[in-house]
């Protein structure tokens, strides 16, 4: 029984560590993908020739994972323009980007607050600012991952090992 218990503890610790790593990886990938999509949006909107909907379709087509799902939600929400503002539709869609931190989601929300409301120079500047912010957050996240990545796996295992030793 003690052996079974010990194995269960070890498994739980391993899973916790792996899950933590997975979430951080998802957060990093989502940030990277969103950042790339903002670069694309900026390029599309700067031409002044495409509508917001067309620019969002292009961003969705070139994105994967959570970012693609996010743009799908925004696009399907645009049927409700008039009942809701674009900013509200965007923010609601961004709420499901739960891999992101509060600060990261605020940076995303800021884009929605200005997209479609201003001329192309102002929107381009807004997207530049969002890219810079998200880029900076991504940089910090990467550094943190390199520094602490293994610790996320080792610490829960170590704690489980100590517990097992005490238990046995």
């Amino acid at each position: 029984m003690k052996t079974v218990g010990a194995l269960l503890l070890l498994s739980a610790a391993l899973l916790t560590g792996l899950e933590s790593q997975r979430r951080e990886k998802l957060r990093e990938n989502t940030l990277r993908s969103l950042n790339a999509s903002f670069t694309l949006l900026r390029s599309e909107i700067s031409s002044g020739l495409v509508t917001t909907e067309e620019a969002l379709e292009a961003a969705k087509a070139r994105s994967g994972g959570k970012t693609r799902e996010f743009y799908s939600r925004v696009l399907s929400g645009m049927d409700r323009l008039g009942d809701k503002t674009f900013a509200e539709i965007w923010t609601e869609a961004a709420e499901e980007l739960d891999a992101l931190s509060k600060e990261e989601r605020e940076a995303v929300d800021e884009v929605g607050a200005g997209l479609g409301r201003y001329d192309r120079e102002t929107v381009a500047a807004l997207l530049d600012r969002a890219e810079a912010r998200l880029g900076s957050m991504l940089g910090l996240l990467e550094k943190k991952r390199l520094k602490e990545g293994r610790l996320r796996l080792i610490l829960p295992l170590a704690a489980a090992a100590v517990f097992i030793i005490l238990m046995l």
């Binding site: 645009m78 503002t85 674009f86 479609g116 192309r120």
Partner: peptide, 20 residues
């Protein structure tokens, strides 16, 4: 003001930049 903003958004399809 918010309601007038709605009208502009609805009329441009949230695309003021392409309707400049």
């Amino acid at each position: 003001k918010r309601e007038l903003g709605f009208v502009l958004e609805a009329a441009t399809g949230a695309s003021v930049h392409s309707a400049s």
